[in-house]
Simulated scan of single mutants.
Amino acid sequence: MIVRIWHGRTQRERAYAYAAFLAERAIPDYRAVAGNLGVSVLRRDEGEISHFLMVTRWASEEAIRGFAGDDLLKAKYYPEDTDFLLEFEPQVQHYRVLGSDGDPPV
């Protein structure tokens, strides 16, 4: 399994609206891709800025290609993101899952 992590920042006053957009548009988009094993959205407020992490789990690199295209580390953005985000980070991070839910470490 591969975990894909995207980071974005928005003004705190726009954070609830951005979270609603993610729930209505982005999360269903991720979930519709074959090989997506789950989506989590995390939020941390820091002063007037809200940080979002989109943490998705994928069965394989091929499954990620079905969502992101051939450049696996390139961040995917939606047109609506221009209404919320302070910048557009060009890449995401990938981690291979070696164990979870009480599995012994590999």
Rank of each mutant, 00 (worst) to 15 (best):
A20N: 13
V39R: 11
W6I: 00
H51D: 08
L22K: 11
I5R: 13
S50N: 02
Y95K: 05
A32G: 02
A32F: 01
V92W: 06
A26E: 12
M54E: 10
F21D: 05
E13V: 09
I27V: 15
E62L: 08
P90L: 02
V97P: 04
N36E: 13
F52A: 04
I49F: 08
G47D: 10
L72Y: 07
H51F: 08
L86S: 07
G99K: 01
E48M: 12
W6Y: 15
L72S: 06
A15P: 06
I5K: 14
S60F: 06
Y18M: 05
P79Q: 04
Q93Y: 05
F52Y: 06
A63C: 04
R14D: 14
V39T: 13
E46Y: 12
D71M: 01
L53S: 12
K74M: 01
L42H: 12
G47M: 04
G38S: 02
D103F: 06
V33Y: 02
Q11E: 13
T56K: 01
R31F: 00
T10S: 09
P79I: 02
W58A: 05
I5H: 03
D71Q: 11
R9N: 11
R25L: 07
V106M: 07
H94N: 14
L98P: 01
A59L: 09
V106P: 13
D81H: 10
V55A: 13
G66F: 10
L42A: 09
V92C: 04
R44I: 08
R4M: 03
S60N: 04
A23W: 04
W6K: 08
Y78S: 10
F52E: 06
F84W: 09
K76S: 00
Q93W: 07
V3M: 14
Q93F: 02
A19Y: 12
E61C: 00
V3E: 14
A20M: 08
G35R: 11
R43I: 08
A15W: 08
E13Y: 09
E24R: 13
I5S: 09
L53C: 08
G99E: 06
V106A: 13
D29M: 05
R43T: 08
F52N: 03
L98I: 12
R9P: 00
R43M: 15
H94A: 09
H7C: 05
S40T: 11
P105C: 01
R57V: 09
S50H: 03
Q11W: 14
E13C: 03
L72Q: 08
A26Y: 06
A63M: 05
R9C: 11
S40G: 01
Y95T: 06
F21K: 03
H7R: 15
